[in-house]
């Protein structure tokens, strides 16, 4: 047996040897350099590039009609996709959270699937389903309904990739709350709908808001799945991320970065909102 060194008298906190202080600053230095190269400089670069042509260049790029159309389309598609996913997320959370049944873990894994599937593969699936040669293609064509290369396809692609966000955030919040309050409401004569609206929903409002913020950020920024189904028709089915790409490929750096700066601002607002809402929702100690 090795003889343990004698215990220090003044409490358990050990002032580390000098080498530890060195190591601490070495590690902090590494982290700062790594994050600067990978995260901070790229983020800063978006703003520098957007305003390199002065405020005028930036503003001219933002009044360009294809840009305005792309921004409007992105807002609309994201709004509809987030709304649909909210209905699904709440329904799934209410259905699953308080019930134990065989296959529960499997069902939750299935809900998580879109996070593991490449967005391009998701887009491909929709093309095989609703495209000209797809399952529903002939029927849709017969009824003059366009899904692929049109708004419904963009919404479906966005819905697919952002599906798990709300369900997976609200479910644990509901589980934590328990069912006593709902049961009290039901016993006092409230209908299930009243109970949901007045008891369940208020109790999970912060988790819901938190997941809405994340879902929206992903919905507005989705690129791969939307690129496959939208056809990227300027002024028609071009969303903001596709506009950025097209401008970059066409060497219109000013236009690319002007649109990128808006999307980056959206990202910063998302991070700030996420920080505060996460704190209010008491999620600081939870892993994400």
């Amino acid at each position: 047996m090795v003889e343990p060194p004698p215990l220090p008298i003044d409490g358990p906190r050990l002032p580390g040897p000098r080498s530890r202080v060195w190591r601490q600053w070495l590690l902090i230095g590494f982290v700062v350099i790594f994050l600067t190269l990978v995260l901070l400089l790229p983020a800063l670069n978006i703003f520098v590039q957007a305003f390199r042509g002065g405020l005028n260049g930036f503003l001219t790029a933002l009044t360009n009609p294809p840009f305005l159309h792309a921004a409007g389309l992105t807002l609309m598609a994201a709004a509809i996709a987030v709304l649909l996913n909210t209905i699904f997320g709440l329904a799934a959370a209410v259905a699953i959270a308080h019930h134990q049944f065989p296959g529960r873990t499997l069902l939750i894994s299935i809900i998580d699937l879109p996070f593991s599937i490449s967005p391009v593969v998701a887009g491909l699936m929709l093309v095989l389903l609703y495209g000209k040669n797809g399952w529903f293609g002939p029927w849709l064509e017969g009824h003059q309904i366009k899904v692929i290369f049109a708004l419904p396809g963009i919404i479906m692609a966005t819905v697919f990739v952002t599906m798990p966000f709300i369900a997976r955030e609200v479910m644990p919040a509901l589980e934590e709350n328990g069912t006593e309050q709902e049961q009290a409401a039901l016993t006092l004569g409230a209908t299930p709908w009243q109970t949901f609206w007045r008891v369940t929903l208020p109790s999970i409002r912060w988790s819901l808001l938190y997941s809405l913020i994340l879902c929206n950020a992903r919905a507005m920024g989705e690129f791969g799945a939307v690129a496959v189904v939208s056809g990227n028709i300027i002024g028609k089915t071009q969303t903001l991320p596709l506009y950025v790409w097209e401008a970059y490929v066409g060497y219109d750096t000013q236009a690319a970065y002007s649109a990128a700066v808006l999307l980056a601002c959206l990202a910063f607002i998302t991070l700030i909102a996420k920080h505060f809402v996460g704190r209010w929702a008491g999620m600081r100690h939870k892993s994400h």
């Binding site: 995260l39 790229p42 983020a43 670069n45 690129f223 791969g224 999307l263 980056a264």
Partner: peptide, 20 residues
Amino acid sequence: AIDLPFAIPTAVAGLTLSTI
């Protein structure tokens, strides 16, 4: 800042990384 890659659209990430 660690969460930035989850919040920033991938097209924007690709754009700024390829420039830098």
